[in-house]
Amino acid sequence: MRTGGDGMKRECVPGRSWAIIIMQGLLSIGAIFGGGALIIDPSGNLVQMPKSLLEHSPFGSFLIPGIILLLVLGVMPAIIAISLFRRTHWEIGEKLNPYSNQYWGWTFSLYTGFALIIWIMAQVYWIQHVSVIHLVYFAWGVGIQIVTLMPDVQRRYAR
């Protein structure tokens, strides 16, 4: 605990908690831009993605993947990063949290790790190719889960 200039006590955010906040925040920024670009131009031309990538997928354009990317891996991680920093209350988050002893933002951090891993696995399956960026984002999803599950991070977000 620290005392701020206003005399109020402030809780310091431990190092690994900062790591998960930053991981969520950076994921959010990239997915908001990527998803937004795919929504603006569902052909994929804006981000130089050939339509042939959709050949084995259930999608005719990049619109639905763009919406999913924007909301699930863009907006949600932004909300999670803010919540992990500020510990905000969210009724829906609490209802979707099966861990009654943990803050909902901590649980949703795990959800994001799973969502990112599933997103990458689906991409690889549908485009039938693995590139370095897939490996990086797959590792990012696993990393989010590892950091979220570290004992000091779990303690930080315990109720």
Score class of each variant (00 low, 15 high):
residue 134 H to E: 02
residue 130 V to N: 12
residue 43 S to R: 03
residue 119 W to Q: 08
residue 64 I to T: 15
residue 141 G to M: 01
residue 128 Q to N: 13
residue 74 G to T: 11
residue 58 P to H: 09
residue 82 I to Q: 11
residue 104 W to A: 07
residue 73 L to M: 08
residue 39 I to S: 12
residue 81 A to E: 03
residue 98 P to I: 05
residue 109 S to W: 03
residue 45 N to L: 07
residue 114 F to G: 11
residue 128 Q to D: 13
residue 122 A to V: 12
residue 66 G to M: 06
residue 135 L to W: 15
residue 140 W to N: 02
residue 124 V to S: 11
residue 125 Y to I: 04
residue 138 F to P: 06
residue 46 L to V: 09
residue 43 S to V: 11
residue 141 G to I: 07
residue 39 I to F: 06
residue 81 A to P: 01
residue 55 E to C: 07
residue 117 I to K: 02
residue 103 Y to S: 01
residue 60 G to N: 14
residue 41 D to L: 04
residue 137 Y to W: 15
residue 53 L to V: 08
residue 56 H to V: 10
residue 136 V to K: 07
residue 90 W to H: 08
residue 117 I to W: 00
residue 72 V to W: 12
residue 100 S to G: 03
residue 110 L to R: 04
residue 100 S to A: 12
residue 80 I to T: 07
residue 136 V to N: 05
residue 89 H to C: 00
residue 38 L to A: 11
residue 61 S to F: 13
residue 44 G to D: 05
residue 56 H to K: 14
residue 115 A to I: 06
residue 80 I to A: 01
residue 133 I to H: 14
residue 71 L to R: 00
residue 122 A to H: 02
residue 134 H to S: 00
residue 59 F to Y: 15
residue 68 I to D: 09
residue 77 P to H: 06
residue 124 V to R: 10
residue 109 S to P: 01
residue 49 M to Q: 11
residue 47 V to H: 08
residue 80 I to W: 06
residue 94 E to P: 10
residue 123 Q to K: 02
residue 98 P to E: 06
residue 61 S to H: 05
residue 98 P to Y: 01
residue 38 L to S: 09
residue 94 E to H: 12
residue 51 K to H: 04
residue 52 S to L: 05
residue 73 L to I: 13
residue 55 E to S: 12
residue 139 A to L: 04
residue 47 V to N: 04
residue 94 E to F: 04
